[in-house]
């Protein structure tokens, strides 16, 4: 089924009326992902935007049409591993899925996720990376880009400050766990996202991890109508390359042979507005370095242009 047909025909598994910000591309990503996964899914939504906007529910109402629960910030992967073990013990099967922010994934939840990766627990873990704790007003995470204004890495009136460190290259860290499937994805490349979720569903021998890059309108300072175009620019500037890896086999799924200058991405985002040309150039250099590293992992295949 092509992407358009799938989106048109599949049931929306998320309740209407959840209270995400106008233009939120995480909500869009979740709805798409859940259409692909379908009703035979158990969904974990840890603390974060999607928990905050009511996907688990409010009082006695559920926010989803599948079984959904609220793990702790730091144990999403472990709780899902337990569900898988219980299902295995009972001879049942379902998609056991996390939809977790970067705080619950790259920071507090990392140990549990790394444990699941190493043990080979069969779950699908999708991280929506909006570079920080957006649900509570944008505090930094270890995924936040260098230079970013956040509420815990503030900028002085004369323009000094912002985060001092680069964000972790987290999908690469997961790929280095040698798990069956790792992919990066973007709400601006929906057919690519859909195919990657379908690939994750086929995995039988361990963790499938998908890292979605979701620029946050409210936290980063992006106009709502640019929600998707900024996400696309992250890919086109090579700042967030789209690839997949099966154990040690890497493949770039959306090649970027002629990257746009990094300024095309950063200039749309208010959290970088205090940065001078040098700091912006550093972000561009980081993107090029990481892209070159990724290409080297693709072992000269023709898709690595």
């Amino acid at each position: 089924m092509n992407a358009l047909d799938l989106l048109a025909e599949r049931e929306d598994m998320i309740s209407p009326g959840i209270s995400a910000c106008v233009g939120c591309n995480v909500e869009l990503t979740l709805r798409i992902v859940m259409k692909v996964l379908g009703p035979n899914t158990v969904l974990a939504i840890p603390p974060g935007c999607m928990g905050g906007v009511g996907v688990v529910g409010w009082n006695k109402r559920s926010g989803a049409k599948v079984p959904v629960f609220f793990p702790l910030l730091d144990n999403t992967a472990s709780m899902l591993a337990g569900i898988r073990l219980a299902y295995d013990a009972k001879g049942k099967d379902a998609n056991i899925v996390a939809f977790a922010g970067d705080g619950a994934t790259v920071d507090a939840g990392f140990q549990a996720l790394s444990g699941v990766a190493e043990r080979g627990d069969r779950i699908i873990y999708i991280c929506y990376d909006n570079e920080g704790y957006m649900n509570t007003g944008y505090q930094r995470s270890s995924s936040t880009s260098k230079g970013s204004w956040t509420s815990t890495t503030p900028v002085s009136k004369d323009g000094h400050g912002g985060k001092r460190q680069n964000g972790k290259d987290f999908p690469m860290i997961m790929a280095m766990h040698d798990i069956p499937y790792v992919a990066t994805a973007s709400p601006a490349y929906v057919p690519d996202l859909i195919r990657k979720v379908e690939e994750a569903m086929k995995v039988r021998d361990g963790l499938a991890y998908i890292h979605v890059y979701n620029p946050c309108l409210t936290g980063w300072g992006i106009r709502a109508e640019e929600s998707i175009s900024v996400a696309r620019l992250a890919v086109k500037t090579r700042y967030f390359p789209l690839y997949e890896a099966r154990r040690r086999e890497f493949r770039i799924t959306v090649p970027v042979p002629k990257p746009l200058p990094i300024e095309n991405f950063t200039s749309r985002i208010k959290k970088f507005s205090h940065l001078g040309p040098e700091a912006i150039a550093d972000l561009g250099k980081l993107a090029e370095d990481r892209y070159a590293f990724l290409q080297s992992l693709c072992r000269g295949k023709d898709n690595n242009a």
Binding site: V42, M79, I83, L85, Q111, A112, S114
Partner: peptide, 17 residues
């Protein structure tokens, strides 16, 4: 498991299932 935190977390998930 890699920690007691995960031990109790895995059992919480399993018990919920």
């Amino acid at each position: 498991v890699e920690s007691e935190h995960s031990a109790m977390s895995i059992l919480s998930g399993a018990s919920m299932a």
